[in-house]
Design a protein around this nucleic acid. Structure first.
Lengths: 344, 344
DNA sequence: TAACATTTTGTAAGCGTAAACAAAATCGCA
DNA sequence: TGCGATTTTGTTTACGCTTACAAAATGTTA
């Protein structure tokens, strides 16, 4: 499958290969006249530049590597993923970058994948779609001084890592305040894995809001479960073991998927939302509005998280000297039908 | 960021660059002795092969291009996507291939993206994650004789296109038969876009099953809507306009997402599933079991679709002469709680 | 041990493009 | 018209690797 090369074009246009190369780059040092001539030849031959050769000469590929958490299987399932991908995609596309996935099953697999990508020169930069405690990949990238950005808040050294994130403390605060504003005083927090920075931060916001309203924080009102469906179930059962008069009148659930589990469990227990108990969720993914009742949810602008991440990374790739920064993507509460004023 | 090259290794190991190259390829014409020597040098220097250079010399990149339908935004949303991606990922990973997304918003964008990828030598092959009528991309790839496989059934020339698909006629048949087996005789078909081959095929299976059972096929029992949520709503409203005694006792819905819409609409109309009406769905994505009631759904093995697609493509890439073939991924009905025997 | 077969390693060209440097063409102005 | 300044184009090397071909080293046999 011998392709048309720059040399073929040069021959047809009767110029040197370098001239053709310059025409492609639209170098101003080539006269309009020959530019036209060369372009005609390109057209005629159906020339398309070879990215690989260009990459080798340039030492740059125009490709961004996407790194998913070790348990990619689970991650892919979360509706967060498609949306953030859409954002990444659009951000990359705007600057003519392509996206490549680091494939791998185990944690080790992924690590090696990243190393190969980076050392192999396959990508110009890398985006981490997660943030976790003690990440070898982060360490590796930092040591090599390789451009990367992270979605979420770095576990440490946040000042020296460009990252895109929500203000999750504020989001937790706002959601809690929203419930308090509806008269709720017994509000439970159902969060995901405590290892995740996001869980901790939203919890902080929750506590802050309680404190500001003069409401007590109770250990028994916070439950941590995995982000999966079952997580929701287990969480709710734990809460329902409390004496009736002590049960929460509202729930703060940090993930829509978990919320769905909670909803189902509640309905099994013959409790209706929002009549018996109010519920505010996070992320506002597609099916927040597909559940019954549709969920009031904190929209964290997932698309934008992805979009900004791409934009920031490309900025770093093209100029390594730009200072590290944090981009905060705004959030807002989308009110639907899972929240109601508390009954007096 | 001058990296360690094959030459550096050669110097340290005191051999020629070509020898190093051969050691990397584990060429049997190199003695074990020098292999060890060279590997030590590689280790010592922290050598990693440069994929780009290798690609250029090899004329192969070990990268697979993934093409989403023009409306990628919508496609990403469908829970089909993450699962098929997981399968693709795993299939590719097994053979050390990476996945690259064709980015683009409009149909034209995507087309150009594919052309660039292909002509630019960025990818060794391409997987189309959809099947549609009159596709320029298919035409283009065929003209260039570029390796590709399709997920779904090609609109035409299916014999000359390697593709991975379910037996959707059979699946439609089985689902319908399942309902008939529960005593249902008035069964409605709610399908997606008629342009999609899959919709047409499942409808065919539905008709076949009715015919075999001696049940009449009625035009008024088939509704076609988009795959989105609202599709489900509109569809159900149309059916509910029929006289009571004529209303279906069971529904066949060709997509889980639509099913969810149907469920919600039904509940708004105070009809309960499966007591008032039974329902069987397709695809069995994550939230088939998250809905209330959990959906009986035809599992089409989405993961496997992806996995096989990768495997088949890689086979073609590595040997262009393998004959085109169709891979049929099996399906099976997962019984949950949305189907019940008809009341006499 | 000579003569040749076989195994192992080295030399060099090429993959398609970019860009530094060199050469040629054009221009302006005296 | 001629000469330097400027614009335009050409020559060549480099990017890091693979591989055909050439050369050297080793082994085999009489």
């Amino acid at each position: 499958m011998m392709s048309v090369t720059i040399k073929d074009v040069a021959k047809v246009a009767n110029v040197a290969p370098s001239t053709v190369s310059r025409v492609i780059a639209n170098n101003p040092r080539i006269s309009e006249q020959t530019k036209v001539k060369v372009r005609e030849a390109m057209e005629q031959l159906g020339y398309h530049p070879n990215f690989i050769a260009r990459s080798l000469a340039n030492q740059s590929t125009q490709v961004i590597g996407l790194v998913t958490p070790g348990s990619s299987d689970v991650f892919f399932q979360n509706p967060f993923f498609p949306t953030v991908l859409r954002g990444l995609n659009e951000g990359a596309h705007e600057h003519q970058y392509a996206l490549q996935l680091v494939t791998g099953k185990s944690e080790d697999d992924i690590y090696n994948g990243v190393v190969q990508m980076v050392q192999g020169g396959r990508v110009d930069g890398v985006i981490l779609l997660y943030s976790k405690v003690e990440d070898r990949i982060v360490t590796y990238l930092q040591e090599r001084n390789f451009p990367f950005v992270m979605i979420g808040k770095p576990y440490k050294m946040a000042e020296s890592i460009t990252h895109v994130d929500n203000d999750n403390i504020q989001a937790g605060f706002d959601a809690t305040e929203f419930l308090i504003g509806m008269g709720h005083e017994r509000i439970a927090y159902i969060g995901g894995d405590k290892q995740l920075v996001v869980t901790v931060e939203r919890l902080q916001g929750y506590k802050d809001a309680l404190a500001q309203a003069g409401l007590p924080y109770r250990e028994s009102y916070t439950v941590h479960e995995s982000f999966l469906l079952e997580g929701g179930k287990d969480a709710i059962c734990a809460l329902m073991e409390l004496p009736v008069s002590d049960r929460p009148t509202a729930l703060l659930v940090t993930d829509d998927l978990m919320s769905l589990g909670v909803l189902n469990t509640l309905s099994e227990l013959d409790m209706t939302v929002p009549e018996d108990i109010s519920m505010i969720s996070f992320n506002n993914v597609l099916f927040s509005e597909m559940s019954r009742p549709p969920l009031t949810s904190v929209d964290i602008n997932i698309f934008q998280l992805g979009f900004e991440a791409s934009a920031q990374l490309i900025k770093r790739v093209e100029d390594k000297s730009v200072p590290h920064r944090r981009v905060t993507v705004p959030h807002h509460i989308v009110k639907r039908f899972s929240t109601e004023y508390v009954k007096k």
